[in-house]
Simulated assay, not measured.
Amino acid sequence: MITRRQFSASTSYLVASPLALSGCSQEYAADGYEAVAARTWQSGPVTGLSGAALGRELVRYATLAPSSHNTQCWKFALDGSGRSITIQPDLTRRCPAVDPDDHHVFVSLGCATENLTQAALAHGLKGEAQFDPASDAVRVTLEPTQAQTTPLFTAIPLRQCTRGDYDGKPLSGEELTLLQRAGSSDKVRLLLLTERQAMEQTLDYVVQGNTAQMADAAFVKELKDWIRFNGADAVRTRDGLYSASSGNPNIPSWIGDLAFRWVFTPKGENDKYARQVRSSAGIAVFVGQTADKMHWVDVGRCYERFALQATALGIRNAFLNQPIEVAALRPPFAAALGLTGQRPDLVVRFGRGPLLPRSLRRPVEAVLM
């Protein structure tokens, strides 16, 4: 998925160089980016909307879900009667290098589906989602019900994949229970790894996977193509991974392109992942009952509930999907987790840490069919 790669904090040396100082400033994108980010992530009204306006608002909440490289690989169709919304994959936005079987695409659809159903409930509609294997689409039927503004709905505009260091402190048993409940279903199993030995074992697979991916020129090019090195580029495209969301400075794109080649190294990235895993409270591994598109959607829904519950508790999370993205690593990683013969779907670290700038979203008009 829902892959979230950091550019690298090592670019900080560029800020101090005359070349960088002559090419960027704090105003290079701050005003435009901040204004668009505020509109994108705002909480909307929960009363006074109906018909197409309500449908568009539900779609807006759905688009605040995560997606691989923030490609926003979805399209939405509003039923003229207001009784359903269909979510289809937008395969023009797939990432074939990191996601050759479109696993992350359908997990992303599940994340959007969960946001939509949470928003629908807050607006007095009960959403029932069903995956149609003939069209590879999720149809959410909407029926009137008593409105409920749940903590998960309130968390939607606050949720982010926080790709920074956490504080290293453990979570309480009550918090872990709430996360376990939110992220599990009868079709999806959630493993919460909080023992340091288990986390170090997972880190070893993350490092192996990251090293393999960084040796793949197609993977590196695909990742770089989705990085937005400054706020102006983030606002222009409204997609991709905004570099500042990983704690990096705003720099002109041409400098970013050069810096990426210089500082995006296996050692630098592996050291970063080691530091970040060791600063986390734990690692969550999501496992669908079956390795097919329908269950990948279910995994996405469970992950999004987990992420929203975490957000409601002030807990951050970020993906560590290398062990499940590198096909050769999946079987031994599964075996190490006691999941021989199964396919782990998502690997996510969690803990408390600061908020970072957000990657943006395209307007509703861009995703409606």
Score class of each variant (00 low, 15 high):
Ile2Thr: 13
Arg5Tyr: 11
Arg5Glu: 13
Val15Leu: 11
Ala20Thr: 14
Ala20Pro: 08
Leu21Asp: 12
Ser22Gly: 15
Tyr28Phe: 15
Ala29Cys: 12
Asp31Asn: 14
Tyr33Glu: 09
Ala37Arg: 15
Ala37Ser: 14
Ser43Val: 10
Gly44Leu: 15
Val46Ile: 12
Val46Gly: 04
Thr47Tyr: 06
Ser50Trp: 05
Ala52Val: 13
Glu57Lys: 12
Leu58Ile: 03
Arg60Asp: 09
Leu64Phe: 01
Gln72Met: 06
Trp74Cys: 08
Ala77Trp: 08
Arg83Phe: 05
Arg83Val: 10
Ile85Gln: 08
Asp90Ile: 07
Leu91Met: 14
Thr92Met: 11
Pro96Gly: 06
Val98Ser: 10
Asp102Val: 09
His103Cys: 10
Val105Lys: 00
Val107Asn: 09
Ser108Ala: 14
Asn115Ile: 00
Leu116Gly: 08
His123Leu: 07
Ala129Thr: 07
Ala129Arg: 00
Asp132Thr: 05
Pro133Met: 02
Ala134Met: 11
Asp136Pro: 05
Thr141Arg: 14
Leu142Asn: 02
Glu143Phe: 06
Glu143Asp: 10
Pro144Ser: 06
Thr145Leu: 00
Pro151Arg: 00
Ile156Phe: 01
Ile156Val: 09
Gln160Gly: 06
Arg163Leu: 06
Asp167Phe: 01
Gly168Trp: 01
Pro170Cys: 04
Leu171Met: 04
Leu176Ala: 02
Thr177Lys: 14
Ser185Thr: 13
Lys187Met: 12
Arg189Lys: 15
Leu191Pro: 09
Leu193Gln: 03
Ala198Thr: 11
Met199His: 00
Gln201Lys: 14
Asn210Gln: 13
Met214Asn: 03
Met214Tyr: 03
Val220Gln: 01
Glu222Ala: 01
Glu222Arg: 00
Phe229Glu: 10
Phe229Leu: 09
Phe229His: 11
Phe229Trp: 15
Asp233Gly: 05
Asp239Gly: 10
Leu241Gln: 13
Ala244His: 01
Gly247Met: 06
Leu258Trp: 10
Ala259Glu: 07
Ala259Trp: 03
Thr265Leu: 14
Gly268Ile: 05
Asp271Pro: 02
Ala274Pro: 09
Val277Leu: 02
Gly282Asp: 03
Ala291Pro: 03
Asp292Glu: 12
Asp292Gln: 11
Met294Asp: 13
Met294Val: 12
Asp298Gly: 12
Asp298Ala: 14
Arg301Ser: 10
Glu304Ile: 06
Ala307Asp: 08
Ala307His: 03
Gln309His: 08
Gln309Thr: 15
Ala312His: 05
Glu325Thr: 00
Ala328Thr: 10
Arg330Lys: 13
Pro331Val: 07
Ala335Thr: 15
Ala336Lys: 00
Gly338Leu: 04
Gly341Trp: 03
Gly341Cys: 04
Pro344Arg: 07
Pro344Trp: 06
Leu346Tyr: 04
Arg349Val: 01
Arg349Ile: 05
Phe350Gly: 05
Gly353Pro: 05
Leu355Asn: 14
Arg358Ser: 09
Arg361His: 09
